[in-house]
Design a protein around this nucleic acid. Structure first.
Length: 1053
RNA sequence: GGGCGAUUAGCUCAGUCGGUUAGAGCGCCUCUCUGAUAAGGAGGAGGUCCCUGGUUCGAAUCCAGGAUCGCCCA
């Protein structure tokens, strides 16, 4: 009758995980955990919202695994938590995907399609993918309150942002200003930096060299070069490098100024240079603009300005400046206070006041522009150029720069407060704090508007006369509304656009059309989800608006906010420093003057296993759904836990397989325990987990001490959010358990009789595996649970139903003596094996004696306590411990630098020399040298083996083995060989471990003697009930060192 | 140009407080175990700890400068 479920040789992670998910579901384990921790100390985690726009990737799984790991750990420690997951719902990414799926290709097509239908499609996409991501996250094992996720598109979230914006306005931080944008003239939309990645293509464009004649000397001109003819009508300045030398060259058209370094390329070797001058001399001179005959150009005073970014390696060394058509031009324009001419509209068509160009696109304008310049006599030459140029990823159209009006929040008023607040945060890794500070010191004003559709509607209202009003809440909107709010289904376009409001002066105001930056949506979360400033708690109230039916998240009250703000911890990838970490901090500093989080864990990027970025089009991307069903969630999670966060992670099936194999060690240890626990009917004692099991041997004490040590290491690592130290500590414990404890204790488990020793062995092994289960539970919740169910639950009285309800193990004071002693024994064993190898004696051959010699009395005592284990490991009859190191070794005394360094300082090298030369005297344990008396703590003994011994040494410890063999030892060795051989036969015949066998053997004289002497042992070890020596047996030939026989092995039952 | 990192074995990476003999996994070679076995164990080969200088009795570790790579900002 079996009490334990049989354990397969290797874990089927996938099957285990599905089984455990079902178990948790059936037993409502997560909610039981929450009930168990209710009222406990709080651990407040704010989840950074994942964009609910696509299924999640393995890089998301990294972050989610870390989040879950820490939350599970804190839960095991008894902390009450909120477990609120978040979805980011608005912004260009969602719009772009929806556009694709609807086959729309421009803003115009969206508007024709209908903003209401478009908004619904965006909401539907969020609903679809938030459901997908929820399913995936559950599969990963993440425990969250999935029914109460927050969605940033809900009315309450938007309303909180309104409130924040109004606060900014009240503090005069809000303004409307210009911003150069990268623009697709065909799609009629700006592109974000992200959309520019990989957007460069080889293109051919027209080039023009154009003269800008000086007003005070019309025959003289600066000559510029441009590849964007359409920007010339927006020219307001020409930039020169004030430090560079310029030359005036006489040509058929007059006198042309260009940078001296460019003269030869432009005019050939025989150029007629009439004058040279520093660029600075040209600065300030005014010139006739190329399109002064058009209204906008005529209104501008064109002049030469200084700019240190003028390049001398291409063009003319004079740069045409159009601040309305270029990012760098715009920045220079701000410095030089230049006019900003924006010649084209949203669709990239020239505006009506551009005369003959009006209505033309930027591309179509190239020829008319050239013709016009030629006609004006200012065109020097025209040509074409092939170069890399950014194009729209949607339609392939050449992108242009275009200055547009946007809304901004001033950074300066809060900059210092934000820096101060960031300094209160514990950044992990530390350097991320420096990055945040650098970002804050350099941050520009926050551009919060987007000329799009699916986003939070900015609550900015303007009257025809220019009066401005900002609405801070739905209530205020209701009070001021001129139109009925009945049609306002939610706070989104187009519905909100139809509501006009009345200003204080009684005028009618309409909303501006812009929506807000999605980082406002995410940044407000520490307020909007926690009920900041609210008087009443509204159950399920957060879902109002676009979140209706998607979530049951509450809209709490201010008391709740006080309880949970600021977050104890947040964690996202490093790029969030300038995104979510920033926007949260900004909004929090504005609203309450402090940081919204106390600890931050950031992590780097996830690459493929060769270190390359994962990319759909490169074919090296790994889908989460595939990964989790192939490598398993636990394996993935353990990989994430092992990963140093400040390093890029190389993720793939190869590394996963390595990790999977390492996990086998724990599994094998568990399987070993189950096998013998089942055979023996072992019943564990749950209280052992708290009070520790009884120890019968030094090995027992050692492994228990190692558990204590490991718990302490894990505690420290996890309290600092540093998972790799935790994961490595656990692996190290498991290695010790398997390689040393179990290997050294195996015989105790398969002895038939029961006694104190076997009981201690079982309880100790059970204790270590069960504690390890608890330790790995946060990182590998499935395997931990599966082992727990079989090993602990229902086997031990009082055991919790789930490892996740079992609490975190408490570290006792580690028995450091036991650990130190065993480390010495390990060294001795390792040395002994080395010595055997030197003496050419394989481990199977028993030897008479090993001698362990050390001058250190403590070390001798430590080794003494483990001599049985050492004898077993070295397969020797006796272990002799000696202080007569000289027998085996030459001894050298070296200073203990760590202790002696600070004491002796510069005398160290001299003392070291004297010791090495043997120029010292011993006085008891002390050493007198060079005028110093050194105690035993202040020196170390180094040893070298003397010639002619099978000796190995390390750190003052030396081990020799007696390699002499007599007949008895040889026979015993042969017996071992024979046992080894028979076990092989058993295995070849596929017998079960517990099957009994009979053996017939035809033996030579020597083998007969071995059978006579060691027959009992051979029968016992091979579970042989009858061993008959007879002639003429047909079977397998045995031959060891010339000792031969033929064996036949049969199963008895 | 400013900022933040990284550089350690063939590969991927640890390395705490500065301590003199720098580690792990994988790979490779040799051996071993065979009652954990598609495993396990031991041993070996393999290192200019990027370079230069400094501080120190002592530097992979701290400081300065440089090189290369990555990232953030401009």
């Amino acid at each position: 009758m079996s009490t334990y479920d049989a354990v397969p040789a290797t874990p089927d992670h996938i099957a285990i995980e599905h089984r455990v998910l079902e178990l948790w579901e059936r037993e409502d384990t997560f909610n039981r955990l929450r009930a168990q921790n209710a009222g406990g100390p709080t651990f407040s985690f704010t989840d950074g919202p994942i964009t609910a726009n696509n299924s999640m990737g393995v890089h998301h799984a990294w972050g989610r695994s870390l989040k879950d790991l820490v939350q599970r750990h804190r839960a095991m420690q008894g902390h009450e938590q909120r477990y609120q997951n978040g979805f980011d719902c608005q912004g260009l990414w969602v719009e772009v995907e929806v556009e694709k799926s609807l086959g729309l290709n421009s803003k115009q097509e969206i508007e024709e399609y209908g903003l209401d239908k478009f908004a619904r499609a965006c909401r539907d996409r969020v609903a679809e993918y938030s459901a997908v991501q929820t399913r995936q996250s559950k599969r990963l094992g993440q425990w969250m309150d999935w029914d109460r996720s927050y969605y940033t598109m809900t009315d309450p979230n938007i309303e909180y942002i309104w409130r924040f914006l109004k606060e900014c306005h009240d503090r005069e931080m809000l303004y409307r200003g210009n911003r150069p944008m990268v623009w697709c003239p065909r799609c009629g939309t700006s592109l974000s930096q992200h959309e520019l990645i990989d957007s460069y293509r080889d293109r051919t464009h027209p080039t023009l060299h154009v003269r800008f004649p000086f007003l005070d000397a019309p025959e003289e001109a600066v000559v510029v070069w441009t590849t964007t003819p359409w920007t010339l009508p927006a020219n307001v300045a020409a930039a020169v490098d004030p430090e560079a030398e310029y030359s005036a060259v006489r040509t058929s058209q007059g006198i042309d100024w260009v940078m001296t370094a460019r003269v030869e390329d432009l005019f050939g070797e025989g150029a007629d240079v009439v004058r040279t001058a520093k660029g600075a001399e040209l600065v300030g001179r005014r010139y006739r603009g190329p399109f002064d005959d058009l209204e906008p150009g005529a209104a501008v005073e064109h002049r030469v300005v200084a700019w240190d970014m003028v390049a001398g390696d291409e063009g003319t060394g004079v740069v045409h400046i159009a601040p309305g058509c270029g990012g760098e031009d715009f920045e220079l324009g701000k410095v030089e206070d230049l006019e900003v001419l924006v010649p084209v509209d949203d669709a990239g068509c020239f505006l009506p006041d551009y005369g003959f160009l009006a209505g033309l696109t930027t591309a179509d304008a190239a020829d008319p522009v050239r013709a016009h310049l030629e006609q004006q006599g200012v065109l020097v030459r025209s040509g074409t150029i092939e170069h890399r140029f950014p194009v729209c990823w949607r339609c392939g159209t050449d992108l242009i720069h275009r200055v547009v009006e946007e809304w901004f929040i001033r950074a300066e008023p809060v900059r210092q407060a934000m820096i101060d607040a960031a300094a209160t945060v514990n950044w992990v890794p530390e350097q991320y704090g420096k990055r945040m500070e650098d970002w804050l010191r350099n941050m520009g004003d926050w551009c919060i508007s987007r000329k799009r559709y699916w986003g939070l509607p900015l609550p900015f209202y303007k009257t025809e006369s220019g009066e401005f009003l900002i609405i801070g809440s739905i209530e205020e909107l209701r009070e001021r509304a001129v139109d009925s709010l009945d049609g306002l289904e939610e706070l989104h376009r187009p519905w909100i656009d139809g509501i006009r409001v009345r200003t204080d002066s009684g005028e009618i105001a309409e909303r501006v059309t812009e929506v807000g930056d999605c980082w406002l949506d995410a940044g407000i979360v520490p307020f909007s989800t926690l009920g900041w400033g609210r008087e009443s708690f509204q159950e399920g109230g957060y879902a109002a608006g676009a979140g209706e039916g998607l979530t049951q998240a509450d809209l709490p009250d201010h008391e709740y906010w006080e309880k949970w703000f600021p977050a104890d911890w947040i964690s996202e990838m490093r790029e969030q420093i300038r995104l979510w970490f920033y926007s949260q901090l900004f909004m929090s500093v504005v609203l309450v003057g402090k940081a919204p989080y106390k600890n931050v864990l950031g992590y780097e990027k996830l690459h493929d296993e060769t270190g390359r970025a994962m990319h759909k089009s490169w074919g090296n991307a790994i889908w989460f759904d595939d990964a989790v069903e192939e490598m398993g969630a636990d394996v993935m999670r353990w990989m994430y836990a092992l990963q140093t966060p400040s390093q890029n992670m190389n993720f793939g099936y190869g590394p996963a397989n390595e990790v999977r194999r390492r996990l086998l060690t724990l599994w094998n240890s568990y399987a070993f325990l189950i096998r013998y626990a089942d055979i023996d009917g072992f019943t564990p004692t749950y209280a052992d987990l708290e009070h520790r099991p009884p120890s019968a041997t030094a090995l027992d004490r050692w492994i228990v001490a190692r558990v204590d040590e490991t718990i302490a290491t894990c505690d420290e690592a996890l309290s600092g959010y540093w998972t790799p130290t935790y994961a490595r500590a656990v692996e190290s414990l498991v290695d010790d358990l398997s390689a040393w404890y179990i290997r050294g204790s195996r015989a105790r488990f398969w002895r038939p009789e029961s006694d104190v020793d076997k009981d201690a062995a079982f309880r100790t092994l059970w204790y270590v595996v069960a504690q390890t289960c608890r330790l790995i539970a946060p990182a590998m919740p499935f395997m931990a649970e599966d082992i727990w169910q079989n090993l602990v639950r229902d086997r031990a009285v009082d055991a919790p139903d789930s490892v996740h309800l079992a609490g975190w193990p408490s570290a006792g004071t580690p028995d450091t003596e036991a650990i130190r002693a065993f480390a010495l024994a390990q060294t001795a064993i390792s040395l002994g094996r080395g010595a055997r190898a030197q003496g050419n004696r394989k481990l199977r051959q028993p030897l008479r004696e090993a001698v362990i010699a050390t001058p250190d009395a403590d070390a001798r005592a430590a080794v003494e306590s483990l001599r049985e284990e050492i004898a077993l490991e070295l397969n020797v009859k006796n272990v002799r411990i000696s202080d007569a190191v000289d027998e085996l070794l030459e001894v050298e005394i070296v200073p203990n630098f760590k202790v002696l360094g600070p004491k002796l300082g510069k005398d160290i090298p001299r003392v070291q020399q004297l010791l090495k030369a043997g120029d010292y005297e011993r006085s008891g344990d002390d050493v007198v040298v060079g005028g110093y008396t050194l105690t035993s703590d202040e020196i170390e003994l180094r040893t070298r083996p003397r010639e002619g011994f099978a000796v190995a040494d390390e750190g003052g410890l030396a081990v020799a083995v007696d390699t002499e063999l007599d007949e008895e030892l040889e026979d015993e060795g042969l017996a071992r060989e024979l046992i080894h051989f028979i076990q092989g036969q058993r295995k070849d015949a596929d017998f079960e471990v517990a099957d009994r066998i009979e053996i017939s053997v035809t033996a030579d004289a020597r083998l007969r003697r071995v059978l006579d002497r060691f027959g009992d042992e051979i029968r016992r070890e091979t579970l042989c009930t009858a061993l008959a020596v007879e002639d003429g047996v047909t079977g397998a030939p045995f031959d060891a060192d010339g000792c031969t026989g033929t064996l036949a092995v049969r199963r008895t039952s």
